[in-house]
């Protein structure tokens, strides 16, 4: 579904992504794990085409989208990012946040269906509908952020550190939710520092060190490999 090759990313003169090659096949969960500052968020931003200058080849379903604007990637390709730290609109209600999710004309046409879908998956959000998003707990905010992205009718969902700052019980819940989304046919690319939680449920995994991919392999295989342990202490 998505493949990038010979992929570089830089902020001004500072190159943070070096010659990446990565493939996400349709219907799979792919994780990129790495320590703080390895370039995980930069990778996500580069796929969205926001805040970072890129160079190289990015194909989505065979189409070269490397030069597309962010709006086009969201609307036409159907790529949506759940950013690190949720990045909700704090003074807007939960419902308004979800509405912003279907901002593009394509998603807006399916607005009602989107709400039904998101509320059926995350019934808690319906109860919180009228509350300002900023007043929710971390776990609930993560659910709003996921719901907001789902409102855009995505085909490829990007998750930037979905487990960051969540209590263990919420980590399991989010993890289960990601699994459900996969079963519904969504393709998921996530970057995580928490290698255990992410690789466990991934079909394929990559290890990112200082902006370079150093290993790749089957999700749980990679998790138990000595290689990963060597570069990635504390797993």
């Amino acid at each position: 579904m998505l493949s990038i090759e010979n992929w570089y990313g830089r902020y001004g003169d500072l190159t943070v992504l070096h010659d990446l090659k990565l493939t996400v096949s349709s219907g799979s969960i792919v994780s990129v794990v790495g320590a703080n500052g390895a370039g995980k968020s930069s990778l996500m931003k580069s796929v969205m085409g926001v805040e970072i200058q890129t160079q190289g080849k990015m194909e989505f379903e065979g189409e070269d989208i490397g030069h597309w604007s962010t709006q086009r990637r969201v609307e036409e390709a159907g790529i949506s990012l759940v950013p690190e730290g949720r990045r909700l609109f704090p003074e807007m209600t939960v419902r308004e946040n979800l509405e912003m999710g279907c901002y593009t004309p394509r998603a807006r046409k399916l607005r009602d269906r989107g709400f039904d879908f998101v509320y059926s998956l995350l019934p808690k959000l319906r109860e919180r509908e009228k509350q300002p998003a900023g007043s929710l707990s971390g776990g609930e905010q993560q659910m709003v952020a996921l719901g907001r992205s789902l409102m855009s009718q995505p085909r490829l969902l990007l998750l930037d550190e979905p487990f960051l700052g969540l209590a263990p019980i919420m980590v399991r819940q989010v993890s289960r939710f990601i699994q459900e989304l996969k079963e519904m046919g969504l393709t998921i690319l996530m970057v995580e520092q928490n290698a255990t939680s992410s690789l466990q449920q991934s079909d394929w995994g990559y290890v990112l060190v200082s902006g370079r991919i150093v290993f790749e392999g089957k999700g749980d295989g990679l998790l138990h490999s000595q290689d990963l342990r060597n570069v990635y202490l504390g797993v």
């Binding site: 926001v50 805040e51 962010t70 969201v74 990012l81 990045r87 704090p90 901002y103 593009t104 807006r108």
Partner: peptide
């Protein structure tokens, strides 16, 4: 209105608004 909400959204978090497909 959607446009009005996008303006509010962009003033709260420009990065997130861009991710929503706001120009």
């Amino acid at each position: 209105t959607y446009l009005g909400k996008a303006i509010r959204a962009a003033s709260m978090d420009r990065f997130a608004a861009i991710l929503m497909g706001v120009n």
